[in-house]
Amino acid sequence: MAPPDSRPFDEVRRTSHDPRSFDDDALQDALDRAGDSAWGTVAVIPSTGSTNADAVGQVQEGAPEGFTVVADEQTDGRGRLGRSWASPYGAGVAMSVVLRPVVPEAAWGWIPLLTGVAVVEALAAQGVAARLKWPNDVVVDGDARDGTPGPRKLGGLLAERSGPAVVTGIGLNVDLTAEEAPVPRATSTRLEGADVGREQLVVDVLVALRRHYVRWQLTGGDPDRSGLLDAYREACLTLGRPVRVLLPGGGELEGTATDVDGSGRLLVRAADGTAHTLSAGDVEHLR
């Protein structure tokens, strides 16, 4: 079931450890401590184009729910609107998890938001005060490193449907240095002053993701009854902020982001008082 060239942790151990490679022993220990709450099989790939693409391929081979692909290096990760997300060797966490939701498909749009809540909780466990920028960015509040407006981007999320499954992808900058950061607005847990172990972070993400996902499924995908809506509102830095939204197909909207609705759509009130409900768009936080 593991992708080609992957390393199942119960079969391979290193005799020496490259500090910019995943430590198999450390990851296995973290998985053992988490037990069943860490979910399914985890496979590490030294380098790949996209962990989402690898996981989608495994879905087509029958990968079970919870199957996870992690890469030391990602050279052509997928972002929204066809954008790429590259992760230099050993500088971050690039991982994708297979989900097989049994709730109504109308609720599946909550999966990337659910994933974001889980990631914020996992980072908090490692001492990083991360927030979410609607719809799919993991950020740290504050200006960019060159003093231009923030927030600082720590990572991104992308959910892709593959038949009856959804692959939820997570890219986080961990040991990325200032020299490796592509733009001043990019940051990492290291640049934020946190000493984060990538192996434990992977497991913390899986544990938090499973906890929220199970609650969400048990309520039939209801974000309110599952507590997900309140958790997302608390984690989302966008809410209550003046924003500019670049709309799909052109055009833009300025106003105040007031809330997310039961479908995960962003509610924006324009300066003239009109209310807008957005299911997609690129959001810029304004000062």
Results as ranks from 00 to 15, higher is better:
Gly147Arg: 13
Pro149Trp: 00
Pro149Ala: 01
Gly150Thr: 09
Gly150Glu: 07
Pro151His: 06
Arg152Thr: 01
Arg152Leu: 10
Lys153Phe: 08
Lys153Thr: 08
Lys153Tyr: 08
Leu154Asp: 10
Gly155Cys: 13
Gly155Tyr: 12
Gly155Thr: 12
Gly155Leu: 14
Gly156Phe: 06
Leu158Pro: 13
Ala159Cys: 01
Ala159Asp: 03
Ala159Leu: 03
Glu160Pro: 09
Glu160Cys: 06
Glu160Tyr: 08
Glu160Asn: 06
Ser162Glu: 13
Ser162Met: 14
Gly163Gln: 09
Gly163Pro: 13
Gly163Asp: 06
Pro164Ile: 02
Pro164Asn: 00
Pro164Ser: 07
Ala165Gly: 08
Ala165Glu: 01
Ala165Trp: 05
Ala165Gln: 00
Val166Gln: 00
Val167Pro: 04
Val167Tyr: 05
Thr168Asp: 00
Thr168Asn: 00
Thr168Val: 15
Gly169Arg: 03
Gly169Trp: 10
Gly169Ser: 07
Ile170Trp: 04
Ile170Met: 02
Ile170Phe: 03
Gly171Lys: 02
Leu172Tyr: 04
Asp175Ser: 10
Asp175His: 12
Leu176Met: 15
Leu176Val: 12
Leu176Tyr: 06
Ala178His: 14
Ala178Phe: 14
Ala178Cys: 13
Glu179Pro: 01
Glu180Leu: 14
Glu180Phe: 02
Val183Tyr: 15
Pro184Leu: 07
Pro184Ile: 03
Pro184Cys: 01
Pro184Ala: 04
Arg185Ser: 15
Thr187Trp: 04
Thr189Ala: 11
Thr189Cys: 15
Glu192Gln: 10
Glu192Leu: 08
Gly193Val: 06
Gly193Asn: 03
Gly193Met: 06
Ala194Cys: 03
Ala194Trp: 02
Ala194Leu: 04
Ala194Asn: 02
Asp195Cys: 06
Val196Arg: 04
Gly197Trp: 14
Gly197Leu: 15
Arg198Leu: 13
Arg198Gln: 14
Gln200Glu: 14
Val202His: 02
Val202Trp: 08
Val202Gly: 00
Val202Gln: 00
Val203Trp: 10
Val203Arg: 10
Asp204Ala: 15
Leu206Pro: 04
Leu206Met: 06
Leu206Ala: 02
Leu206Asn: 05
Val207Lys: 00
Val207Phe: 03
Ala208Ile: 07
Leu209Ile: 04
Leu209Met: 10
Arg210Glu: 09
Arg210Phe: 05
Arg211Lys: 13
His212Asn: 10
His212Arg: 11
Tyr213Cys: 00
Tyr213Met: 02
Tyr213Gln: 01
Tyr213Asn: 02
Val214Glu: 11
Val214Lys: 00
Val214Leu: 10
Arg215Phe: 04
Trp216Glu: 05
Gln217Cys: 11
Gln217Asp: 00
Gln217Met: 05
Leu218Glu: 15
Thr219Cys: 02
Thr219His: 01
Gly220Phe: 05
Gly221His: 10
Gly221Glu: 02
Gly221Asp: 07
Asp222Met: 08
Asp222Trp: 10
Pro223Thr: 03
Pro223Ser: 07
Arg225Ile: 07
